[in-house]
């Protein structure tokens, strides 16, 4: 116990000195578990997040838009892959993480439990959801765990491109036909509040925040990040003539911040507990892909057992 206390002291001293913790370093079990929870949730979010946007790949309205969307969803698969690998450095396997996702034990970002109803949703997701992810991930790029920090730095670069293409779709539609303007305002109305919920509960209701902040896994609180997102996004909506669906939204000259209305926390908890519009569909789609791919994975294992390698590679 005394030894562990010594280790804990040295661990916290390193963190306070701004050092990164690496996979082989000693870390408190709670630090490891919190990181596994956060990082695997993040990986799952990338993979489940492919579904709502993937829903529009075959219906993209031009070949260029189709290619950009395909590339974006492919990036998300890449992020998921990269994050699973980074999480594996904490001593958990991708199979274990997947099992938790498919059994419904692991969470992923609530936002992906909402449906994409029109093409405008593709623009608004890029603009708002990737925009919110950037605010969160810019902070996480400075997180104390080395592999997570490096993953975030790499992923943030691509997310910026995603946000840009999303906002470009939104801007194009906002100056388009009346039908397009209706679609894009409707999409903003549906996605605005769920996007604000992405930052999680108020600081006072966030049970994990204390240790996460102390160990510099997180460097800012949920409410701080949410405010930053609102401050960035409101002027962008106004620039293209869209209305944020919040009658209480007002600019505070003194603080320099946009003040906004209260989030419907009943909705937040309802969706987290599995009763959002698409929770069942999303999990069903992941399970179906997993089950239908079982014979393929079994074949790859059987081939490798027989030949000790992949075809075309030296033994």
């Amino acid at each position: 116990m005394a030894e562990d206390n010594g280790k804990l002291e040295r661990f916290e001293a390193r963190i306070n000195a701004g050092e990164k913790i690496e996979p082989k370093d000693w870390m408190p079990e709670r630090y490891r578990q919190q990181l596994i929870r956060m990082m695997s949730q993040h990986a799952h979010s990338e993979v489940v997040g492919m579904l709502p946007e993937g829903n529009w790949i075959t219906r993209a309205p031009s070949l260029r838009r189709k290619m950009v969307l395909l590339a974006k969803v492919q990036d998300e698969a890449g992020h998921g892959h990269y994050l699973y690998s980074a999480t594996e450095t904490l001593g958990v396997t991708r199979e274990e993480m997947l099992e938790k996702l498919l059994s419904g034990k692991a969470k992923y970002s609530n936002i992906f439990n909402y449906p994409t109803l029109t093409w405008a949703d593709i623009g608004v997701i890029g603009w708002l959801v990737d925009g919110a992810a950037i605010v969160n991930q810019t902070m996480l790029a400075k997180t104390s765990y080395g592999p997570y920090s490096r993953a975030m730095i790499r992923i943030c670069k691509e997310e910026n491109f995603h946000k840009k293409q999303g906002y470009e779709i939104v801007a194009t539609m906002a100056r388009g036909t009346p039908a397009q303007r209706k679609m894009v305002q409707d999409a903003l109305n549906r996605w605005w509040w769920p996007t604000l919920m992405m930052f999680g509960p108020h600081d006072k209701d966030s049970p994990n925040s204390g240790d996460l902040l102390r160990w510099k896994v997180k460097l800012k609180t949920n409410d701080e990040l949410r405010q930053r997102f609102v401050d960035i996004t409101v002027p962008q909506a106004h620039a293209v003539g869209l209305t944020i669906p919040d009658p209480e939204l007002r600019y505070n000259e003194e603080t320099g911040h946009w003040e906004f209305g209260e989030i419907d926390w009943d909705e937040f908890w309802r969706v987290i507990r599995g009763n959002g519009p698409c929770n069942k569909e999303r999990l069903a789609a992941r399970r179906k892909a997993h089950q239908e791919g079982a014979w393929v994975r079994a074949a790859a294992e059987a081939y490798a057992r027989k030949h000790g390698r992949e075809p075309g590679k030296a033994a």
């Binding site: 993979v47 791919g293 994975r297």
Partner: peptide
């Protein structure tokens, strides 16, 4: 492109 998000492995 119909496979995107539904493949047997990531």
């Amino acid at each position: 492109s119909e496979w995107c998000g539904h493949g047997p492995i990531l």
